[in-house]
């Protein structure tokens, strides 16, 4: 499935992600990493669950407000439900052990020049690329 090349929208979105990370650090002293924020509200629940719920709720509501205001969000899922569930399960295990994902390691950690985050990001980018190649060009799904 082809998708349109959208450098300006993607750059704008990226800058907004960065802005969010800066504000969360400047005001609350927290890393805007989805794995860390989410893991804290999964049992055993962290004592500081309230700000995590607020951030997660905001992350869901933000795009809804944009849509309600007439904005468009291109969205297509070229993956079957069983593979989405399988992928989700694998992602959950991976981000737990890897202690972070694209937002925590790829943006916040890399921005701090954390060696752990740089190593993690290089690793998952390589394995994601390899997996997409295997799924699409070898398995032919």
């Amino acid at each position: 499935m082809e998708t349109e090349f959208t450098p300006w929208m993607s750059l704008t979105g990226g800058i907004l992600i960065g802005l969010s990370a800066i504000l969360l650090m400047a005001f609350n002293g927290r890393i805007a990493g989805m794995t860390g924020i989410l893991t804290g509200i999964i049992p055993p629940i962290s004592t500081d669950w309230a700000w995590r719920i607020a951030f997660l709720a905001g992350a869901v509501i933000g795009p809804m407000v944009f849509l309600a205001a007439g904005g468009a969000i291109p969205y297509a899922v070229p993956v079957s439900l069983p593979l989405l569930a399988l992928g989700g399960l694998i992602v959950g295990v991976g981000v737990y052990y890897g202690a972070g994902c694209t937002s925590g390691h790829g943006v916040c950690g890399m921005a701090r020049l954390s060696p752990r985050s740089i190593a993690a990001t290089i690793t998952f980018m390589i394995f994601t690329g390899l997996t997409v190649y295997v799924v699409r060009h070898i398995a032919g799904i």
Binding site: T3, L16, I17, G62, V65, F66, V77, P78
Partner: peptide, 21 residues
Amino acid sequence: SGLTGMIFGLGIAISGMANPA
């Protein structure tokens, strides 16, 4: 936290990171 979550979610949505295709 809610406000930064909203900015994050909006950024993710318009950037294409929430679009698996």
